[in-house]
């Protein structure tokens, strides 16, 4: 008797369950049938960019240390969002390379993020930045960045990705950072090899981002004045 009651209750449960599941599936399908897709999603361009002059850079790494310090509270070049690489086997001007985030007009990193952790921050002049709390650590943004090395950095200590936010979120800096304010790397560079601009640089190649920041006075010090010199 008790077995029959149990069977009956299981059968009743299955009927109820099947009916509910079918209802939910059908109900969920209706919006899919109506929604024909939204096609292209417009992403507004960033209102701030960092330009560099590799021919002017002295390779002191101050920008990397400052970047790490203001964002992470420690000086660790592996946590810096701007990367300076030095090649001792090459001569000037190919001995130093500067790799800063380009704040691309079409950001592949934003497109790749599955949880919208990498997003366009409309409150900070459309910079492309990471909400570290939402990052699941899939590293798709790191791979998606079309630049080499990737401008999205993996924070190996806190297990999330991070990238240049033009100092919009600098918890360890008492200065006012952000696209409309100061940038740590630009502020500390002793030779002014980093410059913030609001105009969109040329997106093809590195020409638009690696520019001549040397003035006529630079030649008076005996340095190479022009990029093509």
């Amino acid at each position: 008797m008790s077995d029959n009651q149990k069977d009956l209750s299981r059968r009743q449960f299955l009927k109820l369950f099947a009916g509910t599941a079918a209802g939910v599936a059908f109900g969920g399908a209706i919006p899919q049938l109506i929604n024909l897709g939204n096609g292209v999603i417009a992403i507004p361009a960033s209102e701030g960019y960092l330009l560099v002059d590799t021919g002017k850079c002295a390779g002191c790494s101050s920008c990397m240390l400052a970047c790490s310090l203001v964002h992470e509270g420690k000086e660790n070049i592996s946590l810096s969002r701007i990367q300076i690489l030095q090649n001792p086997f090459k001569n000037y001007p190919d001995d130093i390379s500067m790799f800063q985030c380009r704040q691309c007009t079409y950001p592949a990193c934003v497109e790749a993020c599955p949880t919208s952790a990498l997003y366009v921050d409309k409150e900070n002049r459309n910079i492309r930045t990471v909400d570290e709390r939402k990052c699941i650590g899939c590293m798709q943004c790191v791979e998606a960045c079309p630049q080499t090395p990737s401008r999205v950095i993996w924070n190996f200590e806190e297990h999330h990705s991070q990238k240049c936010d033009l100092c919009a979120n600098t918890p360890f800096w008492d200065g006012q950072g952000g696209p409309g304010k100061k940038k740590a790397c630009e502020s500390v560079c002793p030779v002014s090899a980093i410059k913030f601009v609001q105009e969109i640089p040329t997106q093809y190649g590195s020409v638009g981002y690696d520019v001549d920041l040397r003035g006529p006075i630079w030649q008076k010090f005996g340095f190479v004045a022009r990029r093509d010199s």
Binding site: F17, A18, A108, C138
Partner: peptide
């Protein structure tokens, strides 16, 4: 993305097969 050379990714099953989550729960209940 063909427009950017070197722009690669992989398929994350948590995103592309997210429908399997409710299906597995419903399958378990069944």
């Amino acid at each position: 993305q063909a427009v950017f050379a070197g722009s690669y990714t992989y398929q994350l099953l948590f995103t592309s097969f997210s429908w399997l989550i409710p299906v597995s729960i419903l399958g378990g209940i069944f």
